[in-house]
Design a protein around this nucleic acid. Structure first.
Lengths: 151, 151
DNA sequence: CTACGTGCAAACGGTTTGCAATTCC
DNA sequence: GGAATTGCAAACCGTTTGCACGTAG
């Protein structure tokens, strides 16, 4: 199967490799969703964001499929699911998993998301875990507020 | 109105003051819920936890009221609402607000919650915010894993 | 007395699922 | 061709809400 999803052919090919590695068939919906996540502006989209944008692009896809595919991608570690509490509504947002761990600053005004990584905090978390006899499997750290240079 | 909720009279009286300060009438459901939060083992309960335990105690209350009261308590800063992602289910948990900021370690096995506070991390967050030109309004930091001394 | 609070059941919003039709390999 | 995937609509689950009744102050 050959699919032209965007002009960035390298990205399409990469997608296919990712899917293959995950043991997932390369289907149109999956490629569309990956492509959308790759091209999205702030790289953090809800299932509905993805669905609406695809529909807007004239694509044919169902919301159920978006959810199913994202769940599979999460299991395959292709994407990471987050639950930002920004706007009170509790919908999950997804970002591509580039393998680099990072935390998030989320704007309460615009929803803008910035990723950051801090060695000092990471180390301190490990020290604290040891102190409390706790084995960290995962962690989430999100700063909510606003960027002072936002329009 | 005089209500005997528990033998710890001081706690009942404190509850009433909290409610009064929040401009909330002292009603039976509210006192029961506060009392349950105060007496709960790990101090982090979902609305349904509270509801079920009260029903189990032979109390008469509706789940809708538990939700409504908890929402009012949150607005009045009597409780804090959290969204732990431990068990995949996304139900909110509530804890009494004792005014001291802290973060959480959550056991994925038992749901046990331990609070901690670390000056180094807090300072580092502030430094990072400055660096990114970001004004922190709130933050959440949760470590998920397991306590090595758990049964 | 009356404004506020409650219970019930129905609605809600995000997400999941059963099933028949379709697609990839 | 046959297993995997999709679309549709219905179910789901935690939470919220409209309304008639009940209760605190």
């Amino acid at each position: 199967m050959y699919i032209v999803v965007s002009f960035k052919d390298n990205i399409v090919i990469m997608s296919n490799i990712e899917l293959k590695n995950a043991g997932l068939k390369i289907t149109l919906p999956r490629v569309k969703i990956l492509s959308k996540l790759e091209s999205s502006e702030n790289h953090h989209m809800s299932a509905e964001d993805i669905y609406k944008e695809l529909i807007n692009d004239g694509e044919v896809i169902s919301l159920a499929t978006v959810y199913r595919v994202l769940t599979q991608f999460e299991a395959a570690k292709i994407v990471i699911r987050h639950h930002f509490e920004s706007d009170g509504n509790s919908q999950a947002v997804f970002e591509l998993n580039h393998g680099d761990h990072h935390d998030h600053m989320v704007s309460l005004k615009t929803g803008k998301v910035v990723e950051f990584y801090d060695e000092i905090i990471e180390n301190r978390q490990k020290e604290l875990a040891k102190e409390y006899n706790f084995k960290i499997v995962d962690h989430s750290m999100i700063l909510y507020g606003e960027f002072l240079d936002e329009e």
